[in-house]
Design a protein around this nucleic acid. Structure first.
Lengths: 249, 249
DNA sequence: CGATATGTTGAACATTCTCAAGGGATGTGG
DNA sequence: CCACATCCCTTGAGAATGTTCAACATATCG
């Protein structure tokens, strides 16, 4: 029984939840957790499954417990832009509004910890710790979004790819509680298409730039979804930002 | 004595403030306003003046009362991307963090209602109405940022210009409490350079696309900073999004 | 095994950028 | 008041970057 199955089937208590200290509940103490426990439910979404559709009414909100999901917007003619990458502990859904213009799609199998929106909103009103955490998380997301805007508006295709790989490498290191070291190897949890939607490129350009980085020895490709970075500083240099510039996630 | 001068010199009370019902204080009642009144101060910034520098410690935060300011990030080699357009009632500064990676620059003369960060943060802790409003405003900003990401990542130069003009037209209409009607005329409060930084383009491309829209009769140019839109629906069509798609601001 | 989804590569093309020149405004000092 | 500088904007020509269209490779799954 893997972790995802265990979480869903046993409906584990908040106190044992893997995202307990980073999710919307992070600032809550035991008494508040009891209330959250009472209104939460777990649900799994398969890879490729849509969690919420843009424009449709949705009365569940919650946290990503495991897996990866994407938040994206689509133009009427079909052009799509990913506007958020949802990772474990990230919050899904906008409190105080009944529908949102975003599609949320599971990139890999996703376990969500969900609340009925109405009940959650009521709890937020009476629980400062929840509202405070929600504010901090939203401010962080806003910073990420703005970092991303810099990438979309001003970086070259090559810099975009390098930035994305650096972001994924860092996040993986954090999740696995390792340092970002040279020789680091990691899985890219996105298809070429998802990467293109993330970076505002076409899949062909993504593929070509990855091939170029490989040819130049900046990355090694184990297979199309697994990357090794011999020298992380070189990758960061290709990403175009200062070493001190904050990165999303 | 114009409004800006009057606000600053007389240090008007919150109850009479023009942004009273849209700013961070919008949800506050009289008792909270007294506390805000006690710690606030007004300050003016001239056009072109930098309000806060990226990376530098800044212990003032506050609201834009009048004028227009830009929030932007810069890559080490000088490429710049505007990541926020700050209008009256918008909040400047990030609570809970001592410096931010953004330059805030006045585009036109700006009047700020400022608080010492420490004092403001303390007040937020004891004032749910403030924190609640801050959350709502941050969520709105996040939606705007994501809309903008769609523009930066997927729209053509022409669509970007049309989108920006539509945004400015709408905002002007709201501020002047008019409807967005055909034949609407308005001032563009940005230089070509600022528009380019906003849209992720060069000033030459901005200039060319504006000329093209003019040549095709989609807009009239009174002068380089004043636009008239004969048929708003046509402009929206050029912007690429659905009529129902939300617009930033 | 064929069908489908994913990824790579090539060639022609389109869009946007870069570099360059020049046209008003506005302001300043002589 | 003129000469000059500065700022903002426009336009042109050529170059570069990224896209489109197309073919093909690889892997997975029934």
């Amino acid at each position: 029984m893997n972790l995802a199955t265990k979480i869903v089937e046993t409906n584990i208590r908040c106190g044992e939840c893997p995202i307990r200290h980073r999710a919307v509940c992070a600032y809550c103490e035991a008494p508040d957790l009891v209330k959250l426990d009472a209104i939460k439910s777990y649900r799994t979404y398969k890879a490729g499954e849509t969690i919420t559709w843009a424009g449709e009414r949705n009365d569940m909100i919650g946290s990503v417990v495991s897996g990866v999901a994407s938040l994206s917007r689509t133009l009427p003619d079909g052009r799509r832009q990913m506007v958020g990458l949802l990772l474990p502990s990230d919050f899904v859904g906008r409190p105080g509004r009944d529908n949102s213009p975003y599609d949320v799609v599971a990139a890999h199998e996703v376990v969500m910890c969900q609340f009925r929106k109405k009940e959650f909103e009521n709890l937020v009103k009476s629980t400062p710790a929840l509202e405070h955490r929600l504010l901090d998380m939203t401010l962080d997301e806003l910073d990420s979004a703005r970092e991303w805007m810099l990438l979309l508006g001003r970086k070259t295709a090559r810099e975009k790819i390098a930035s994305l790989l650096a972001i994924i490498a860092r996040r993986n290191a954090v999740l696995e509680r390792k340092d970002v070291v040279d020789g680091l190897q990691f899985a890219v949890p996105l298809t070429r298409e998802a990467m293109a939607d993330y970076l505002g490129l076409t899949i062909e350009t993504v593929s070509r730039q990855i091939s170029a980085l490989k040819k130049e020895g900046i990355i090694d490709l184990i297979d199309s979804r697994h990357v090794r970075v011999p020298d992380f500083a070189i990758l960061l240099d290709e990403a175009g930002d200062d070493s001190d510039g904050g990165m999303p996630y």
